[in-house]
Write a protein that binds this DNA or RNA. Sequence first.
DNA 1: GTTTAATTGTCAATATTTTATCAAATTGTT
DNA 2: AACAATTTGATAAAATATTGACAATTAAAC
Lengths: 225, 225
Amino acid sequence: MTDERQISKAVIARLPRYYRYLGDLMEEGIERISSNELSARMKVTASQIRQDLNNFGGFGQQGYGYNVRYLYNEIARIIGIDRQHNIIIIGAGNLGQAIANYANFEKRGFMIKGMFDINPRLIGLVVRGVEIRGIDDLEQFIIENEVQIAALTIPKSKAPEIAERLVNAGIKAIWNFAHMDLSVPEDVVVENVHLSDSLMRLSYRVSSMMDERERKEKERLEKEV
Amino acid sequence: MTDERQISKAVIARLPRYYRYLGDLMEEGIERISSNELSARMKVTASQIRQDLNNFGGFGQQGYGYNVRYLYNEIARIIGIDRQHNIIIIGAGNLGQAIANYANFEKRGFMIKGMFDINPRLIGLVVRGVEIRGIDDLEQFIIENEVQIAALTIPKSKAPEIAERLVNAGIKAIWNFAHMDLSVPEDVVVENVHLSDSLMRLSYRVSSMMDERERKEKERLEKEV
DNA sequence: GTTTAATTGTCAATATTTTATCAAATTGTT
DNA sequence: AACAATTTGATAAAATATTGACAATTAAAC
């Protein structure tokens, strides 16, 4: 019986990074690692690593540390990438194609079953073995192919309408690249990738870094006088 | 004189979303808004909105609320998108081109000055008025064009080498789409967009949603018996 | 086989973030 | 012009997240 206390968002957000580092360790041929060593690599506290992992069970061994391969597989199971997920991409522009072309997704169980677009010039084209279809076939395709996840790489203006169609067709999750928040029923997962938000966060940090540099420079000059 | 206490990451992460909603309000022709109304739209507490904004100053007025246009401009100033940022894109594949084609970036002061790639078939092509150049010209271009930000849309394997060249050429920030963490001096900003991490977070949430659904179904059946 | 060193998982202590509360200020109404 | 309704900004309280400490356990050294 699974423990039913809610895992915090922050912990979940860190899991993929742990997974990534464990994958790297495996590639380096490292078989075991302590929270301390991993802490040094990842620049997080060892305590946090142990605390995070213990939300899901005791994967380590005292005096030994963690077995890299075992932990890697356990995290895959926790994240749910040990199962197969069927995914479609809606919007076959550059961004949609970029996602389709990222090979590793398929390695992790995300099978791209189809791509859709409204642009007639794109319909019929084949990207990485996946045909681009007209948006009319959307609902039928989702049901027939047991699609759970839809990547939404279309402009903001079309997003709400398509999101509603996806929900009605029974999609479980939307990977949303449109620059807006979607409103969906609470049993539909929306994971946002708001690139403009990301660029603004970067902008904030650059700006405050520059401000700080200026301030320090000023301080230095004042001291000289 | 600016207040020098550190603004928390969580607050900064929320600013672009406030900015987005304020933009929408302006488009709707709404001139003033209270933290309560905004709270209802954004699905965050009014208290958090007021608290967040007050990190940067008192932009509202008691009994009135916030002037939408004024707050919008103030947030733009805080984020630093009232100034011009020169940006280059390294990696002119689908992802790089998707970014180049997103028009709104330029509206917010991010001027795409150049694109770079190693693929000879791409070099010389023009995307949205920007020529794709060979990677050899990188350093000189950065200096001559006062480039502050580089978007890194290249495979993991090339990322560390290019990142180092960028740093040496004096870049201020890297918008990193490569599926790895870069190590750079602390005065260089790195904003990561790890799409695979994002998809894994989605996967976790879908999986636990499905688990929960199963659990409830089971509970229901047990009750019936 | 015993001892020492290493390391986890857990619990307690800190630190941070979020939410609630309310006096003070402002607007709009009568 | 007085009064009721709003609404902020600030402070306090509550909730959450992170870090530290250490007993229990294991591995490795001797």
